Simulated scan of single mutants.
Amino acid sequence: MSIIGIGFDLVTVSEFGEQLERAGTTMVRESFTPGERRYCQGKGTDPARSYAVRWAAKEAVLKAWASSRFARRPQVGDNPYLLIEVVNDAWGRPSIRLHGLAQDFLPRAKIHLSLTHDGDTAGAVVILEDPAPE
């Protein structure tokens, strides 16, 4: 197995809180899947933390994806954020589920994900691993 891409991103949680307070179409409403929005809104008093860390994860995936395509066009499409979904298992552990074009370009990649938040900062690290050739 070999590492084919690494991505890292940090975001400010309060900026997501401001987005959530705005009426109408916002980045939050356009960039998260219905499942992600349900999860984040169900997080009680501070859904902004959940949105922020998921945004950082999506950005980290995009950065890892782009680095895996070194010297080739990234080909992420118009709104790649909906192609990358952060899901949680029954114990709350996060992972990445790819859809559409993202799944087509990374069909065999194993995606390692680590999320964190501290105060007004949220971050994510993604490592793309290519399994041994079939």
Rank of each mutant, 00 (worst) to 15 (best):
A90S: 13
I6F: 05
W55K: 04
T25S: 13
L113N: 09
P34M: 09
G35R: 14
G100T: 08
S68H: 08
G24P: 08
L82Q: 12
V86T: 15
T25N: 05
Y39D: 07
E85F: 08
I96W: 04
L10M: 11
C40D: 01
G42C: 09
A48V: 02
F70H: 13
D46Q: 11
P133N: 11
P133C: 04
G42V: 06
Q103M: 12
Q41T: 00
L62F: 12
G119H: 10
T26C: 06
V126N: 04
H99N: 11
A57S: 13
K110E: 15
V87G: 02
A122W: 05
E15I: 01
G24L: 11
F16G: 02
A23S: 14
E134F: 09
A109V: 03
T45C: 00
T116Y: 03
V11D: 05
P94C: 05
T12C: 11
G44I: 02
E134L: 14
D118S: 14
A64F: 02
Q41D: 14
A71N: 15
F16Q: 04
R29Y: 03
R37D: 10
G100Q: 12
A122N: 04
D130L: 15
A109I: 01
I3T: 14
A109S: 15
E21M: 11
F32C: 07
P80N: 09
E21G: 10
E134I: 07
L10Q: 05
E134D: 14
H99F: 14
A60G: 07
A66R: 12
V13G: 01
M27Q: 09
F8A: 07
A124Q: 03
R29L: 11
E129D: 07
S67D: 04
D78G: 11
G24C: 09
L115K: 01
D104K: 12
A57K: 08
D78V: 13
D89Q: 05
E85C: 07
A57N: 06
E21L: 13
L83Y: 07
S14G: 03
A90E: 15
E85T: 07
S114K: 04
L10S: 03
V28W: 00
P133R: 13
E59D: 08
G92H: 07
I3S: 02
P131Q: 10
R69W: 00
N79G: 08
G44E: 00
G77W: 10
R72L: 12
V28P: 01
R73Y: 06
H99T: 08
F32Q: 05
I84R: 03
R69F: 07
G42D: 04
K110H: 13
G92A: 08
P107W: 11
G24V: 11
R69Q: 14
S68I: 03
L113G: 10
A71H: 14
K58Y: 02
G119R: 11
G42K: 06
C40V: 01
V61Q: 06
G92T: 08
R38W: 00
D78Y: 08
R49D: 00
K110M: 10
D104M: 09
I4V: 15
Y51E: 06
G44M: 01
Q75F: 06
P34A: 13
T121E: 09
L98P: 10
R108S: 13
R72M: 10
V125K: 00
I4C: 10
I127E: 01
Y81G: 00
E18Q: 13
P107E: 11
R49I: 15
T121R: 13
N88V: 02
I84W: 02
I127Y: 01
Q103W: 06
E15D: 15
S68L: 03
D89E: 03
G42A: 10
